[in-house]
């Protein structure tokens, strides 16, 4: 069930660089809580360079969610800021980092962007 989450972090690790985070540095730990079990993911951003690992280490900000919600976030079915406002996602530490990293999450799979009309042509 958590394949999408693992894939998300592995993909970030492989990608290695995210231009949207070119001015961002810091560490975020994601604590995915389900009953007594907590899965940890650590994302390190160094001026856009990305590294992810499954470590339970101190971080600049700690984000807490359920594994199911996080799966929704990394597949675009859930929205990070709305989840924060709702209290379904919590953060402790540098909130700015969370708002910045939230921007690299995908949009909803059914969203296709602007409906462009057949070209009328530049007259």
């Amino acid at each position: 069930m958590l394949d999408a989450t693992a894939r998300f972090f592995e993909d970030l690790d492989r990608r290695g660089y995210e231009p949207l985070l070119a001015r961002t540095s810091g560490t975020i730990r994601f604590d995915l809580n389900e009953g007594p079990r907590t899965t940890h993911w650590l994302l390190t951003v160094d001026r856009g360079r990305l590294r992810s690992s499954q470590e339970d280490r101190e971080a600049d900000v700690v984000v807490g969610t359920s594994p199911a919600l996080f799966e929704g976030l990394v597949t675009g079915r859930e929205h990070g800021i709305a989840a924060l406002l709702r209290g379904d996602m919590t953060m402790t530490g540098n909130a700015r980092l969370v708002v910045q990293v939230e921007r690299i999450l995908p949009g909803p799979p059914e969203s296709h962007g602007p409906r462009q009309r057949p070209r009328r042509g530049v007259r």
């Binding site: 949207l20 675009g76 929205h79 700015r96 708002v99 910045q100 921007r103 690299i104 999450l105 995908p106 949009g107 909803p108 059914e110 969203s111 296709h112 962007g113 602007p114």
Partner: peptide, 15 residues
Amino acid sequence: AALQGTRFDDFREED
């Protein structure tokens, strides 16, 4: 700038 759109989200009309 920190909240500039990055993806398509038709509900929020983000691009």
